[in-house]
Each structure stands twice: as C-alpha cells, then as structure tokens.
Design a protein around this nucleic acid. Structure first.
Lengths: 208, 208
DNA sequence: ACCTGAACACCGTTCAAGT
DNA sequence: ACCTGAACACCGTTCAAGT
C-alpha cells in the first residue's frame, strides 16, 4: 500500500486510468524491456485504441516518467540505526533490491537524466546520511551527486550484465571465464566492494 | 570508375566504405545524438540509397558498434610513470577526455552492454595498473570490473547532466541552485573526488 | 560486386469526428 | 468527457531486380 497518490474516484477496471496505464506499462517493461514498449502494444494489452492513451498521458516520454515515479515512490529507505557507514550500506542494499525487482526499468532509468529528483526519498535519505557522517553542509550535494553517479554505474553495469562479464575474466587469456556457479556470491562480493569503496571515499573526504 | 585509389576516406566521392559510413554516422551522432541517427538519414547524408548501407553493415546495431569501436581504438592510455595512484588518475583523466570529445556516443555506449571489451586498451591498461598496485591476480578482474562500473556511472551522469544538476542543490530548499559560473571548477572537483574515492577503495582492499 | 525501388511491418502523434 | 478511425511522417529491414 505504498503509494498515497490520488486514489480519488477509482472507477472499476473498465475505465482507463493513469495508474492503470502505468502498471500495465510496467508489466510490459518487466517482461520484455523498455525497448519493446510501444504505445500501440500497450493499448493492445489494455484492449483499447492506441489514441485513447493520449487522453491520460501526453506522450511516451511522460509515460516512462510516470512508470519510473511509480516505483521510485516505493523506495522507502531506512536511514536510522547504527553508525553512518552501516546506514549507507543498508541504504545501498535497499536501493539495489529495488533495482533487482525491475531491472529493465531501472537500467533504462539510470542511463537517462532526471532519474533522481531532489524530492525523492533517495536523495533526501542519502543527503541525510552524509550530513550525519560529518560532511560539511556546503559539500553534501556535491558529494551526494558523485556518490549517486558512481553507485548508479554499479547498478547499471550489474543490470545489463557488463559487470558480471568483466569480473570473471581470467588474468591469463589461456583460461576461459570461471564457471557461473559462483555468480551470486561474486555479485554480492562485487557489491560489497563497491559500497566499501564509496565509504572509503567519504571517509577520506571528511574534515579531519 | 576511374578510381583505383582506395584511401578509405569515402567522403562524397562515389564509393561507399565501411569506414566512411562510420565516420559519417559519428558526425551525425556528435551533432544530434544517437537517438537522431537513422539508417535513412545517414544514407541521405551520404547521398545514397538507404539500402546501399546494408551491403557494408549488417544492421543498425552493428553500425553503432562500429562507430563505438572507431573511437574506442583512439584511446591509448599512458600507464607509465609515477606511483600507481598517479597512473590511475592519469588513466581516468584520459578516458574522461575521450568522453568529452564525443559525449553523445559515450553516454549511449556507457549505458549499453559490450562497451568495454577485454581486448580494449581500456581494459588491459586498467588491469595493468591494478596489478602493479598490488591487487592479487585472482582479484584483478573483479576489482577492475567494479571500478569500471563506478567510473562509467560518473562519466554517464556527467555526460547527461545529472551530476551537474544534483551537485549544485542547496541544503536548504529556500535558496536556488548556485550560479553556473563555477560549473567547470565544480565539475573538475567532482571528478577529482570521484577518482580519489576509487583510489581509496583500492587502497582499502589491498592485502596488508 | 555493388546499388536501387518497391514493399512490409512497424513506430509516435495529430486531427476531426463520433458517443 | 472520453474514445475512435484515418492519416501523416517517420522507422529498420527484406527481396527481387537492375548495372
């Protein structure tokens, strides 16, 4: 029951709704990727004329933004408890879990501008942790922006497979890549190393 | 038919060349972005029938890959001189300079799989630096993969404007974003902080 | 060997018209 | 107010035919 959006006058199924359009689009994206989403296919899934969508969504870009906001609103980071390093680790883990739930959408969103908005719980949660860590107020935004960009790169590379592909390369080209049996463990190790790197960067940047 | 000269710079002459197709495509991408590139527009620029392109390039995906390889081959990292921290900083700076030369192409490539290939000078250069830094041979690939993903995220966010937008947010919402006069200095500061973070992560990961 | 025209199966979106 | 059909201006790609 996360979203407290509007819920005003929710008709029954028959009527076309902005929310209904977004959730149907999300289902298509989860199944086949953002590239396979089209206004016409979405209309077909909803059993409606393609042009009917334009009475609820101005265009395809707005549609994608709406779907993104639908799941961005689900992110409720827990930023309390423990020292700030633990808070940041938990924060990163929560966000990564969200990315794993909808990898197609997240990979697309991370690669495009305007994914993070200043009002998002993501940004307010992150800047809060940085402030409690002791980052000077004048530098919280810059530090948060850099950390966001770095971590987005990790999630993006993890989501599109680049990370897994490169991480198993053997130093000597004679041997092939390692077996995929330890892929999950390796992925978690990569994640831990990535977050430790970000934490080390913050620590090195704190005023002494 | 006179020309037997095969200097592959098929400009507007007559003969269509794979290289000529790639460079023309790169020009279009630099001007208007990857999204504005189409086989038909590219053919129009080359003064040729759209279908003629398919005799030299199998499809659009291969076209984009060819353009990417065209500029990936230009990256010749200088990995010698100084301690490994200096080598890594120089390496990152060189790669960032390449990204600034063709931002539209790089932003698109960073977001898609297969941008980094194991034979690329990028990967061999990076793994070489990590090895000299003392990263155990069994972990060079994983560490290099994570660092690549993190740094890609930085370049991506820098290229699509997300980084600059978030970095200037003020802690108190009352004040607007800072003036853009110091944008370049801020960008360089962000870059320095990003690379320092990566270095700190490596240092923390080195065997004691 | 290289190039081309016509055609197919798609797109997003506008607009005037229906109810 | 909401929905629709027809139409416009595009796509990538196949195929048979030209030279």
């Amino acid at each position: 029951m996360a979203t407290s959006g509007q819920a005003s006058g929710g008709r029954r199924d028959a009527r076309l709704t902005e929310q209904g359009i977004y959730t149907a689009a999300l289902r298509l994206i989860d199944a086949d990727g953002v590239g396979a989403l089209s206004m016409r296919k979405l209309a077909a899934v909803l059993g409606v004329n393609p042009m009917s969508l334009y009475h609820h969504v101005p265009n395809k870009a707005a549609l994608l933004r709406g779907v993104k906001n639908l799941i961005a609103a689900q992110f409720r980071p827990r930023v309390d408890g423990g020292i700030w390093q633990e808070q940041l680790y938990r924060f990163a883990r929560d966000f990564r879990a969200l990315a794993h739930q909808h990898p197609n959408l997240i990979v697309h969103s991370l690669a495009s501008p305007d994914f993070i908005e200043p009002e998002d719980p993501f940004w307010t949660g992150l800047t809060g942790i940085l402030t409690r860590a002791g980052v000077p107020a004048t530098e919280v935004a810059a530090v948060g922006a850099v950390l966001t960009s770095l971590f987005s790169g990790f999630l993006l590379a993890e989501g599109n497979g680049t990370l897994g592909r490169l991480a198993v390369l053997q130093p000597t080209p004679t041997a092939g890549p390692a077996t995929a049996s330890s892929a999950d463990a390796g992925g978690d190790r990569n994640f831990t190393f990535a977050v430790q790197t970000l934490i080390a960067g913050i620590e090195a940047h704190l005023p002494r």
